[in-house]
Write a protein that binds this DNA or RNA. Sequence first.
DNA 1: GATCAGGTTTGCA
DNA 2: TGCAAACCTGAT
Length: 280
Amino acid sequence: MLRLTLEDFSPAAIAESGQCFRMRPVHTEEQCWELMAGRRYLRIWQLGDQEFQFSCSEEEWADFFRHYFDLDVDYSAYRAYCLEEDEFLKRCMSYGQGIRILHQDPYEALISFLISQRKSVPAIRTIVERMSEIAGEPIENAYGSFHAFPSAEALAACSIDELRPTGAGYRIGYILDAARQCASGELDLDGIGTLPDKELISVLMKLRGCGIKVASCTALFGFHRLGICPQDVWMNRVLHEKYQDIWPQQYQPVLGVLQQYMFHYARLEMRKTTNNRRIS
DNA sequence: GATCAGGTTTGCA
DNA sequence: TGCAAACCTGAT
């Protein structure tokens, strides 16, 4: 158990920001979240604005989770890219204060975002959870029974019929293809980690079911390429309505981070205004 | 029950 | 090169 004061950290915003699918509120406890990252389990309690308690040891924090939450970086440096006159982005950044771009495992990100196509966040969560139950290693701890994210080898060994109960539908073929390529070494995710952004995206896009959106999400959330901005329908609407279809040049180096604030804001605003599909 | 979902592939002009 | 239809199924 570990207690920390963190200035720019919001489990609620991170869990809802659509970048990961295995972090969720624990409803039986106040201000509490849990997550699986690979085979690691973590529980987080928010005790005050900046006061947190974590279920891991100091060693596991230092070795893994501190980096996982990108806490070695000061996000005010990213927010400083905001143009003085950009009131919209200012509102998004204030709204999403505490968002981090996680250092997720590239393979986990790839599989998760292959599933994400044409699916809502709750549906993706359900599918990932069931996939883990079917092919992931069981994990027992003081908080209950869980399943690790299935390894590429475990997934590759599955048949389409075994994965059908996940509800992933036609995406199952995409998942199996990708898992088999990772397991066989045909696709070396560690190896392509050194490629420049554009080449990384184009290698990922050779996978079946991996178009520009899924490749961009994998690059941003799995490879931490902060200049890459996944353009989905929400971000297209923001880009069109707020930026006349062109991102400000100055934003390019950290557009992925700025995008995350905008996406989070736009998604929750849209939910409120069902009649008027405009973002204010 | 209908409609849509944070897309991609395929087929056809 | 551009566009629409088809794809599976859960969530609302």
